[in-house]
Design a protein around this nucleic acid. Structure first.
Lengths: 225, 225
DNA sequence: TAATATACTTAGCAATTGGCAAGAAATGAA
DNA sequence: TTCATTTCTTGCCAATTGCTAAGTATATTA
C-alpha cells in the first residue's frame, strides 16, 4: 500500500493522539507522572540528589516516536539529548556498498543521541529510529549546556553517560577482534536478551558484524546442541 | 640476558637521567621550554585562549616513559591524564586465550589515558606502554577535576577529547564490520602512516583485528600489484 | 479469505582468514 | 664479529564466513 504523504501525515497524527491519550490515561495524576520517570532515573544514578533530580527533570520535554519513525536522520545535526522511557530504538549507518549496519540499540533508561554530531554540532553520519512505539524526554544542546554550566552534578551525570557509551563500545570492539561470530552471539544473548525480543535478526546480525545468513546458521548450530 | 632487578633499576635510572639531560639541553631556556609544547597545543584547539593555555599548562608535570616501560598496568587505577609530547605509545588488553590485543596507538599530541578507569576510579582492564622513549605532561584525576570545576574552557577541552576518542572508535567499529582485512589495512596505512613507522606488524595486526600471518599475506598481495 | 510483502532459514559453493610449523630477516647482546 | 632472540614471511590445510538463490514461515493488507 502506498499512501499519499498527506494521508500518511494525518494517520500519523491520529496515532500520535491515540497513544498520548493512552499514555496519559495510564497515570492518575498527569502532572505528577510527566517527569516522574526521568527524575527517578536521575536519582538512581547516585550522582544527583533527589531535589536536584526534580529540578533537572523539569527542563525536559516529552516526545513520542512511533514505530519505524526516524528520530535522527543522517546529514542533520543531532540536537536532542533524549532519555528513553518506553520502547526500543536503533541507530544505524550505511557502509560503502549501501548496506545498513546497526551501530547501537537503546532500551528504556538509555540516553539516545549521536555523540559526535550533538557535541561538535556537525552533520550526523548515523540514523536513529524507533523499533517499537517509544516515549522519551529530551533537552536541546543549548539547554544541556546551560544545565552543565549551572549544575556540577549534572555535568558529572553527562560525563558518566559518555564514559559508559565509550567503554561499552570498547568492550564490543574487543569482542569483535577476539571472538568468533558464535561467541559474540552467545554473549549478546546473555548480556542483552531484551534486544532479541525487540529487534529483527537482520539488524542484530549487522550489530554483531555478520550477515543474516551467518546468524541463521549459527542459531541452527546452537539449537542442535 | 637476565639482569638482577636492582641492576635493572639502576640502568633504568641512568637512562632516565641521560634522556633528561639530552632533553633539557635541546632547549636554550629550560623554564620556557618546559610547558611550551602543551600550552601551544591547547591554543591550537581553538577551545582555549592564549592566557588560559599558559595557566592550564602550569599545572602539568613532566614524565618520561622509556621504551617498553609500562605507563598503566591492568588491575591498577589510571590516575594520569597524560599529554604526549614526544614518542609513541600503545594500549593493549588480553583476550580470553591470553593473546595481546592492541586497543589503541598514541602519537604526539594525543592524550593518553584509559577513560573508564580514570573517570570511574575503577581498575583498568588495559595496559599502556611506551613503544619508543616518550615524554609527556600529566595531571591527576583530582587536579583535572579542579581545573574542570574552575575553568569552563578546560571542561570543553576535556569533553572534546572524550568525544574525539569515542567517534574514532565508532569509525573503527564500522570499518571492522563492513570492510575486509585488506581494506582496513589500506585505510589505516593512509590515515595513520606514522603507526607503521613505530609499531611492530604483530601489534598492528591485532589492532586491525587479524593475525600477524594474515597481515603478512595481505602485504604480499598488495606488493604484487 | 486470498494475496503480498517481509522475515527467516537452508543449501551449495567461493573467498577470506586462522592455526601451525618452518624458514628468512632483522635486531640486540656478548 | 658471533650467537641468540625476536620479527616477519611463507606454505599448507582447516574452519569460518560471505554470496546467491531458493524455499518456508509469518504478518499485513485488500
Amino acid at each position: 500500500m502506498t499512501l499519499s504523504p498527506l494521508l500518511h501525515n494525518k494517520i500519523t497524527t491520529l496515532r500520535n493522539i491515540y497513544i498520548w491519550i493512552n499514555y496519559y490515561l495510564s497515570s492518575s495524576n498527569i502532572y505528577d507522572m510527566s517527569k516522574k520517570a526521568i527524575a527517578l532515573y536521575f536519582k538512581t544514578t547516585n550522582l544527583i540528589t533527589a531535589e536536584m533530580a526534580e529540578e533537572i527533570a523539569s527542563h525536559f520535554e516529552s516526545k513520542i516516536i512511533l514505530k519505524n519513525q526516524m528520530h535522527l536522520t543522517e546529514g542533520t545535526i543531532c540536537d536532542e539529548y533524549l532519555f528513553l522511557e518506553k520502547g526500543f530504538m536503533r541507530a544505524f549507518a550505511f557502509d560503502i556498498e549501501g548496506n545498513e549496519v546497526t551501530t547501537n540499540f537503546y532500551s528504556p533508561g538509555d540516553v539516545v543521541f549521536e555523540v559526535a554530531s550533538f557535541f561538535n554540532r556537525t552533520k550526523s553520519k548515523e540514523n536513529i529510529n524507533a523499533v517499537t512505539d517509544s516515549v522519551g524526554w529530551y533537552i536541546t544542546y543549548e539547554q544541556l549546556n546551560n544545565l552543565f554550566h549551572s549544575l556540577p552534578e549534572f555535568r558529572e551525570f553527562g560525563r558518566s553517560i559518555l564514559v559508559k557509551g565509550f567503554s561499552e563500545l570498547k568492550t564490543r570492539m574487543l569482542s569483535m577482534i577476539s571472538e568468533t561470530a558464535e561467541e559474540r552471539y552467545i554473549h549478546l544473548l546473555k548480556s542483552n536478551p531484551e534486544i532479541f525480543q525487540q529487534a529483527s535478526l537482520k539488524t542484530i546480525a549487522s550489530f554483531l558484524g555478520i550477515t543474516d545468513t551467518s546468524l541463521s546458521r549459527i542459531r541452527k548450530e546452537i539449537s542442535k546442541k
